[in-house]
Structure formats: structure tokens, C-alpha cells
């Protein structure tokens, strides 16, 4: 079944192709909404990948698992704070307190991982920290499965998630939250890197670690800071996903990989690129299946197909700069 003809009372206007209806206006905007929120999540996580890569030229494959730990911490704290109180102002406050503590915890975890698993390998071959990252990823997800079990846990919404109807298009408060938070995080991050002294130091470290050190920048501290910020963002992403997709030990694996693809598509190391890549990937996945007739079973292959095409055609990504090989 490629194109599903639509005959319902929902819509009056339809996109037509040689007289055959393909998809209605309402359905189109619904898919657009679904794609944007999916993309917002990818973008949020892609920010963490892109930051670490920008500074260290190294892909932190444990990023998705830090996200998972962040989600578990957020879940436990929220349930603890909330107790049995009904939805209301307090549950929203409890949710944000849980999120902030989880961000702090994940930031410490990220710094710890960097210190233990990556720093000793900074002078080793480029492959070594990559393998170490994969190892950390397995350690985190297997420990979580061992400690918390392999079943999914429900992260209850801290607010009333009754969908809002905009005509025939439906949007939930949670979807709005995802879009707002992703956008806000991106802007804050961009301002931080462009406008603050710390950010300047980060950019300097990213350009040339040796020279940055000679200029009096504490490179180790900057790298720790990078991991702290990236991991804190991962925790936010984890908690936002958990509201929709539940919490389980391998939740970071596939989402993490797709966010990585988003970062590469946008141009790895580039903050706005990661945001753009994430949204683009979310839209491609949704519309690829919904409109272009890619079988639903192949949904996950869209992301990786895009990755291959980008690597072949424009390896620096849509927003990336071509870098000259350092001699």
C-alpha cells in the first residue's frame, strides 16, 4: 500500500496528483506537527554530540546513555517530590526541580566519564577514545538494566496533557514544551558560546588546544565544562523523551544514533546546524513514511540513508565548514 486514498469527512481540500487524492490538508499538518516535535528531540540531543565534537574532534558514543541515566534520575526524583499530589502547580515545580537536579547529576557523570575514560586517551590514536566511548555506553546501559530491570517505566506527565485542537490538527502541551525547550536551549547555548568569556575560551580550545593553553586557558577545565553542558542537555532531552516514550535501559541507543546523524547532517561541530539537522531528520522520517510511501518497516533506515548520502555528497554537513587537514 503506497498512497492511501482518503475518503473521510475530515477535509475539504486535498493534495491531488493526477486526480488521485494523496493526503488531506489536516493530515498533512498533523504529520508536520509530529515531524517537528520528533525533530526537536533529535536536535536537543544532537547539540551535545556537536559540542563535544567541536572541541575534541571526538564522537561521544556514550551520550545516549547519559541521556538514559538522566531520565532515570529525573523519574525517581519526580516521583519522590510529587508523592501522590494531584496535577497542579506543585507537580510542575517538582518536575522542574527534578529536571535541574538530574541535569546537575548528569553533568557530574559526564565530567567523571571524561576524566576516567577519555582524558587518559587524549594523546592516543583517534580510534582509542572512540572505542572507550562505546565501552562506556555498554557499561551504562547494562548497569541500568541490572539495577532497574529491563521493563519500561512510566514517567507521568506533570501537567494536564489533554490535546489542543486547532481545527483538525491536534497538538499536545508536551509537544509545545519540546519545541520551546529545544529552541530555548539552542539560543542559550549559542549566546553562551558567542558572548561569554567561557564561550570564547571554548572556541579557542576548539581551534587549537596548544595555542589556547599558551594563552593561559585551562584547557582541561574547558573540556570538563563541555562535557558538563553536553550531559546536562542530554538529561533534559532524556526527561522530555521519557514523558512520551517511557524510561528503559536502552532508550538512549537508537535516539542517540539518530541524533548523531542529525549532528552530522547539520555539520558536526556547528550548533545551529545540529538544530537544523534534527528538525530536518524528524520531518524526513515522518513524511518519508506518510507521504513518500516508504514502508513503515523501513522508517529507521531513512536516517541512516540520509547519513550515507550526506557523507558522500557533502561530508562537512549542510552548515559545516570545509576543514583543511592539520599538518
Amino acid at each position: 500500500m503506497l498512497f492511501t486514498p482518503v475518503f473521510s469527512c475530515y477535509r475539504t481540500v486535498q493534495f491531488s496528483y493526477e486526480g488521485e487524492s494523496i493526503v488531506g490538508i489536516a493530515e498533512f499538518f498533523q504529520h508536520l506537527m509530529n515531524g517537528l516535535t520528533l525533530g526537536g528531540i533529535y536536535a536537543l540531543i544532537a547539540l551535545g554530540y556537536t559540542m563535544v565534537y567541536g572541541i575534541l574532534k571526538f564522537i561521544n558514543f556514550a551520550h545516549g546513555d547519559v541521556l538514559m541515566v538522566g531520565a532515570y534520575v529525573g523519574l525517581f526524583l519526580f516521583d519522590l517530590f510529587r508523592g501522590s499530589s494531584p496535577l497542579g502547580l506543585w507537580t510542575i515545580i517538582a518536575f522542574f526541580i527534578a529536571m535541574i537536579i538530574s541535569m546537575a547529576f548528569s553533568a557530574l557523570l559526564g565530567m567523571f566519564i571524561e576524566r576516567v575514560a577519555y582524558k587518559p586517551l587524549r594523546k592516543a590514536t583517534r580510534l582509542a577514545p572512540l572505542l572507550s566511548a562505546i565501552g562506556v555506553s555498554f557499561i551504562l546501559s547494562n548497569s541500568a538494566a541490572w539495577m532497574f530491570g529491563t521493563h519500561s517505566r512510566k514517567f507521568n506527565y506533570p501537567f494536564d496533557n489533554t490535546p489542543l485542537h486547532l481545527g483538525d490538527v491536534v497538538i499536545t502541551p508536551h509537544q509545545v514544551l519540546i519545541l520551546v525547550v529545544s529552541l530555548a536551549m539552542m539560543i542559550i547555548l549559542k549566546l553562551f558560546i558567542d558572548r561569554t568569556r567561557m564561550g570564547k575560551a571554548m572556541r579557542a580550545t576548539s581551534l587549537d588546544q596548544g595555542t589556547a593553553m599558551l594563552m593561559g586557558i585551562n584547557v582541561n577545565r574547558i573540556i570538563s565544562l563541555t562535557f558538563a553542558i553536553g550531559s546536562a542537555l542530554a538529561a533534559v532531552g532524556g526527561i522530555l523523551i521519557a514523558l512520551d516514550f517511557k524510561v528503559y535501559a536502552t532508550m538512549g541507543t537508537m535516539t542517540g544514533l539518530k541524533a548523531f546523524v542529525a549532528a552530522v547532517v547539520g555539520g558536526i561541530g556547528n550548533i545551529s546546524g545540529a538544530m537544523f539537522g534534527g528538525i530536518l531528520l524528524g520531518l524526513l522520517e515522518t513524511f518519508g513514511v506518510a507521504i513518500f510511501g516508504i514502508p513503515t518497516g523501513l522508517k529507521d533506515t531513512i536516517a541512516f540513508g540520509v547519513l550515507i548520502i550526506i557523507l558522500l555528497v557533502k561530508p562537512e554537513g549542510l552548515f559545516g565548514k570545509v576543514e583543511k587537514e592539520k599538518v
Binding site: 475518503f7 469527512c9 504529520h31 509530529n34 520528533l38 512520551d244 516514550f245 506518510a290 522508517k299
Partner: peptide, 13 residues
């Protein structure tokens, strides 16, 4: 994430 499939089913009504 089943929203894509559900949206299509919703349209088939």
C-alpha cells in the same frame, strides 16, 4: 513512536 501510523489510520477513519 507510532504517531505517523496512527495519523494515517485516523485519516482512513
Amino acid at each position: 513512536d507510532f504517531k505517523t501510523q496512527l495519523t494515517r489510520i485516523r485519516s482512513a477513519n
